[in-house]
Nucleic acid binder design. Structure first.
Lengths: 338, 338
DNA sequence: GTGTCTTTGTACATCGTTGGAAACAACGTT
DNA sequence: AACGTTGTTTCCAACGATGTACAAAGACAC
């Protein structure tokens, strides 16, 4: 059995509270007593019961990080960074996979589990801002990526961190245009949603095309059910079967791009000469493709740090509505595919 | 503030215990009372405080999963599967990243955090079986991958799940040999360790070579500081600079293989005609390389399920020494690189 | 009407911890 | 000798939940 304060107290011949005082670094403990207690702690191997402590103090020491899937490298890298950032606040990270299912996203802030966390960081796909605001009444919440909570009068109702998706997408497409490409395809549209990542990146794509006076050929815009390599490969196949195939593709994330690259390779296209490819996310495997993937690189460390700091602030001022909307930096990382 | 049993009890006009009885489905509650309580629960939005419940019941509802790094896709996929398996036992998974650092691996079962978990699943790199056995006195522990706890008289002292690394490595190399390759290199040796994954895979490599009466050229065995794409790329470069370069490479994991593939591509080698490549792990990105990576596929789902079940068993019989050593299946997945 | 049994509800102690306040020395002041 | 001070330790209640013991109320046999 694990030793408790009581065991230590008995061994040291003092009261439970004195041991507690020693453990918590209370000032007024006689040096001799302190030493005796410390010896007792060492011999019993006492470690505080965090559950009990948190019950007493009302802080749990956990935050939840909810992402669609962990085996998407983008989210794995992000999770890794969030864990590191959370460590600084003595927080342990609980990772939840939502699979983009609305109920699972809501459950993060409503289920029984949710009341064992001090705050939650959620990367939502399906759930809208209104639902969340209602649900997240008592759990401080930070949103990642799109679907900002469009609070009244432009003031956000929920903390939010994301890159400027429109600008980032525009940057990607402008890069392709600057390379002399004219028939530029887009992979990853998801017409169902209107506030989501997909629609923002579509907007950026359209803006860049319009600014260069290039027409947007509807045949060159391919949807993706999810942002996986498989969907990217399928979409690329569809594009290459076109009567007039594209000379460049903007993929809405790197996984789609890896799939597209695979299809291009299989069908014997030379990248980037015949087909330029640009992605979004800057996952590590992209840099090791042949050729290495050119991509938009969101500052993941900034995103993770900011999200954790916001969460920390939010739980500190518990409830008071002062949500922030923070835009994280990104950069164009030119490698070999465009 | 979150509602407690007390709030519900006051609203329903019954005692706290009665509410607790309703919540836990105790049989002898009058239908009328039960209903009144349920209404009160609904209007207050009561959800049980799991921390308090666990304090009372002595079970925390958490297990730890400690892996070297989450942004290694193999571990990300594994984590994803463990989370799913743990759900079945109502367990929430705490993911820790050890970065292969000995102290962090030990901390999983010794730090203050460790006493908030019912069990731990650890994928050790640095720490040895003896340290662990001593450290894990009160936390049930399951080891993943190598470094089995070589208990007295061959009986394992700590639960352990892994594929037969020697057999798997041998299978990989035998496949290369069956393809007619003769100068077969190995990337990923780590001479420092003796019970680790690296040495077992080296053994398998040597066995296969010996069985085919092929000499092992020391120049063809390249070490890797860690199992990353970067190390794989560097090692491949080294091999290709050899006076007599290899006609095949066995990489000790897929990440190394992806790096090797990248180098081969950059240097214009045609894979697999001029150089066959085989990996280990079967991470998803391998299937989307150009060409797609041939690899050894450990049954990750079996590993995750078994590990969680062992952990469940271990915490149920808390302390009693009846550790098991389970070998998970693997298969050769032939794709395009070998 | 008494005694026994079953159903339904309540009191109380408890899990391991911490905050607040009281108790207790030891000391110097007046 | 009585009185604060100052430092040090202890006692008690509480965090939110559950298990044990028991009490009240009704049902039933006799």
């Amino acid at each position: 059995m694990a030793a408790t304060l009581k065991d230590v107290a008995e061994l040291a011949g003092v009261s439970i509270k004195t041991v507690s005082n020693v453990v918590n670094g209370y000032e007024f403990v006689r040096a001799e007593t302190r030493e005796r207690v410390q010896v007792a702690i060492a011999t019993t191997g006492y470690r505080p019961n965090l559950g009990a402590r948190n019950l007493r103090k009302g802080r749990t020491g956990f935050i939840a990080l909810a992402v669609p899937e962990l085996d998407n490298p983008y989210f794995a890298e992000l999770a890794s960074l969030v864990i590191t950032a959370a460590d600084r606040h003595d927080w342990t990270v609980l990772i939840e996979q939502t699979h983009g299912i609305r109920d699972r996203e809501l459950a993060v802030v409503t289920s029984a589990r949710s009341q064992r966390i001090d705050a939650a960081i959620l990367s939502p796909l399906a759930v809208g801002p209104d639902d969340l605001r209602r649900a997240a009444r008592d759990t401080p919440l930070v949103l990642l990526g799109e679907r900002p909570a469009a609070g009244r009068a432009g003031r956000p109702a929920i903390d939010h961190v994301a890159v400027d998706n429109v600008a980032a997408a525009r940057t990607a497409v402008e890069h392709l245009i600057s390379l002399g490409r004219r028939r530029i395809a887009a992979i990853g549209d998801q017409p169902g949603q209107d506030a989501g990542t997909a629609s923002l990146r579509m907007t950026g794509y359209r803006e860049a095309m319009r600014k260069a006076s290039l027409p947007v050929d509807p045949a060159l815009v391919v949807q993706a059910a999810d942002y996986s390599r498989a969907e990217g490969a399928a979409a690329m196949n569809q594009l290459l079967n076109l009567h007039e195939p594209p000379d460049a593709v903007f993929c809405f994330n790197d996984l789609l791009a890896m799939g597209a690259l695979r299809t291009a390779g299989v069908r014997g296209l030379e990248v980037p000469r015949e087909l330029a490819v640009i992605g979004f996310d800057d996952i590590r495997e992209g840099a090791y493709g042949v050729p290495a993937l050119t991509t938009i690189a969101p500052d993941k460390k900034a995103i993770a740090d900011t999200a954790v700091d916001l969460a920390f602030g939010a739980q500190a001022r518990a409830g008071k509505p002062m949500a922030q909307d923070i835009t994280a930096p990104f950069e164009l990382r030119v490698r070999e595919t465009a």
